[in-house]
């Protein structure tokens, strides 16, 4: 139960970070004219409902919703967004395309995205550690797996500290991204293979 509660804390923190990041956009300013500002914090209710109803607290759906909120400030960085804007422009709706473009001024939100992802990772671990400890107790072992969570925090912190360095190296050459993609693909295949066994 204590790990699940920890997961709830992580999910609420992540939700707050995501909403705060989204609040700094122009798009939020327009939306707040129509909707009351507190309604955006309603997102945080999702993990609380999950916690009360004994379901997943920090679910993948919730994480995706937060990622979308966090990515809105830096959507200009997306090639897809640029493509859409260009398409509208070449279709003859120049004013519309410029308005949409101005609606999403670029603001780097990679830090927030990283925080949300790190909290999601911690949330995944918290919920699974609880199940793992329950299984250990059923097998007759009496020890805690809390060090995993602590070391996870350390590892994530280590990556966070070096994030700027990694992103500057990556920005110089797309080869790093290609390498990460390759690693990701091979890891995904390996994981699928292991799960199949």
């Amino acid at each position: 139960m204590r790990y699940r509660f920890l997961s709830l804390v992580f999910s609420i923190l992540a939700g707050t970070v995501a909403v705060e990041t989204f609040r700094e956009t122009l798009f939020y300013g327009i939306l707040s004219m129509v909707l009351p500002p507190w309604i955006f914090y309603g997102v945080i209710a999702v993990p609380v409902i999950g916690f009360i109803s004994e379901k997943r607290v920090f679910s993948t759906g919730y994480y995706i919703a937060l990622v979308i909120l966090v990515l809105i400030p830096s959507i200009q960085d997306s090639e897809l967004f640029e493509g859409v804007i260009d398409a509208i422009y070449y279709l003859g709706y120049e004013t519309l395309s410029r308005s949409i473009f101005d609606l999403f001024p670029y603001r780097d939100s990679l830090d927030s995205l990283f925080t949300v992802t790190a909290l999601h990772l911690a949330g995944i671990y918290s919920e699974n550690l609880e199940a793992f400890e329950r299984r250990l107790n059923a097998e007759g072992y009496r020890f805690t797996v809390t060090p995993s969570l602590f070391l996870l925090m350390l590892t994530v912190g280590f990556v966070y500290i070096n994030l700027d360095r990694i992103s500057s190296i990556s920005a110089e050459s797309n080869f790093v991204y290609a390498l990460i993609s390759l690693l990701l693909l091979s890891f995904s295949i390996m994981l699928i293979w292991r799960l199949k066994e």
């Binding site: 090639e79 990772l121 890891f187």
Partner: peptide, 16 residues
């Protein structure tokens, strides 16, 4: 989204 920066986040999982 064609945002290669997102891939950097996967490093957190890979390092584990």
């Amino acid at each position: 989204l064609i945002m290669e920066k997102i891939l950097l986040l996967a490093l957190m999982v890979l390092i584990l």
